[in-house]
Simulated assay, not measured.
Amino acid sequence: MNAELSKLRWACRRGMLELDSMLAPFFEHHYLDLSAPLQQDFQRLLECSDMELFRCLLRAETPSDTSLELILGVIREKHQARYSG
């Protein structure tokens, strides 16, 4: 694995179990299948604080960067499919 992917894998490890349980599996199973723009959005999403990311994934707030809504929706969809299937 190249250094950039290792760095992203590490960035998926957060201070909250809830985030870890959504981000790490998403990265492992879906990241490489994303389009380049969505990969960039995912990388920008990882720059958010844990609390902002948590609130956005739970739809309790809108991200300060509204262009991240699409990647948030993709993460939610994949997470839901993983546990309802």
Results as ranks from 00 to 15, higher is better:
40 Q>H: 12
72 L>K: 13
51 M>I: 12
38 L>E: 11
43 Q>L: 04
34 L>M: 00
81 A>N: 13
32 L>Y: 03
82 R>Y: 11
24 A>K: 10
65 D>K: 06
35 S>G: 11
78 K>S: 05
66 T>H: 12
35 S>F: 13
30 H>D: 13
76 R>D: 09
47 E>S: 07
46 L>F: 07
72 L>Q: 06
27 F>Y: 14
76 R>W: 08
52 E>I: 09
67 S>D: 15
48 C>A: 12
41 D>W: 03
61 E>G: 07
60 A>Q: 15
38 L>V: 03
64 S>I: 03
71 I>K: 02
55 R>Q: 15
13 R>C: 06
68 L>T: 11
30 H>Y: 02
59 R>Y: 05
29 H>I: 03
17 L>K: 12
48 C>W: 09
11 A>T: 00
57 L>R: 06
70 L>Y: 08
38 L>Q: 13
30 H>K: 02
54 F>T: 04
58 L>S: 10
35 S>M: 13
46 L>M: 14
41 D>A: 14
57 L>V: 05
16 M>A: 14
34 L>C: 00
30 H>A: 01
1 M>Q: 11
61 E>V: 12
75 I>M: 11
65 D>G: 02
22 M>N: 01
47 E>V: 03
27 F>Q: 05
13 R>K: 10
60 A>C: 10
80 Q>D: 08
80 Q>S: 07
2 N>D: 13
48 C>N: 14
67 S>L: 11
42 F>I: 08
78 K>R: 14
12 C>V: 06
33 D>W: 04
64 S>P: 02
78 K>F: 03
55 R>N: 14
37 P>F: 00
78 K>D: 06
82 R>H: 12
75 I>A: 04
46 L>H: 09
2 N>W: 05
13 R>H: 10
85 G>F: 06
76 R>G: 06
26 F>T: 03
39 Q>L: 01
64 S>R: 10
79 H>C: 10
69 E>Y: 02
3 A>I: 13
20 D>E: 04
58 L>I: 04
17 L>Y: 02
23 L>Q: 00
69 E>F: 03
48 C>Q: 13
14 R>I: 01
7 K>L: 10
13 R>S: 07
30 H>G: 00
82 R>A: 14
